[in-house]
Every structure is written in C-alpha cells, then in structure tokens.
Amino acid sequence: MEERVMRLMQKGSLACSEDTSIRDVAQIMVVNSTHYCTVMNQNHEVMGIISARSILKAFGRDLDQTKAKDILVPYTFTITPSTPLKEAIQLMDKRKIEHLIVVSDRPGSKAILGLLHVEDIVDRMARDEERQPS
C-alpha cells in the first residue's frame, strides 16, 4: 500500500503570532530546541513558517522591531494527512524545506494539524534498513 503523510507526521506545532518579534521567535526555537516555528494569525489560520535559515534574513536588523510576518516563508502549497509520502518528499526536495505544514483535508481549511519533519523521514529510513535481514 502506498504510504501517506499521516504515518510520519507529528501532531501539533509550535506557533507564534505574526506580530511576534524575531528575538522572541529565536528564543522560542532555542528553548524548545526546534528548528522551526509556524506563524498563525488571530483566527488561527496558518500564515507560514520560519525556519532557522529564514531567520538569518533578519540578522543585522533590529531584532525587536522586525516582526515574524516580515521574514516568514508564506504557506502556499497544501499537504494533507492523505497526501502520498513520496509527493511530500519531492516537494521538500524541490523547495528545500525541512518542515512541511500539514492541514486538514476539509476544503478551505487553514488550521494546522501538524508537521512533517525531515528527521522523521530519515529516522524511518534507518529503521527500515535495520529491519531488513542483511
């Protein structure tokens, strides 16, 4: 059977609002030891994601004045739990994104269900290899 995103995605996500300052975003990431932070607006709709790489764009600017919405990578493509895993991996590779936001299957839904991380895919690959008799 074809594997789907729901097998590997993690439920829930770390989020900040669009007006959070970059210094706070950096602190959220360091304290939680994650390499991403999703950005939501007031209606809990997903706006985009800030990764460790995109935060570099703000380096040299005033970290307290720069807001999350200034540097976020906008959310433009839809990944749902039933998307085939292969398709998600291709998207990650093409866009060079390490964390994909997963939203609900419902049309028009913009609430975050969870995230698909690149680590979980590598972890899965390592475990698949261990399982195979060598």
Partner: peptide
C-alpha cells in the same frame, strides 16, 4: 556551523543556560 547555532546566538540565551532542560 549550522544555521541553528546562529539562531542561538541571535536569541541572546547563553549556552549552558538551557542545556539541562534540553
């Protein structure tokens, strides 16, 4: 040098401070 190391630097949290929690 990883981009996360830079985030650590930008956050202003000293190394070692949160090490125990992590």
């Amino acid at each position: 040098l990883c981009s996360f190391d830079i985030v650590h630097y930008m956050s202003g949290i000293e190394t070692g401070h949160y090490e125990q929690i992590l």
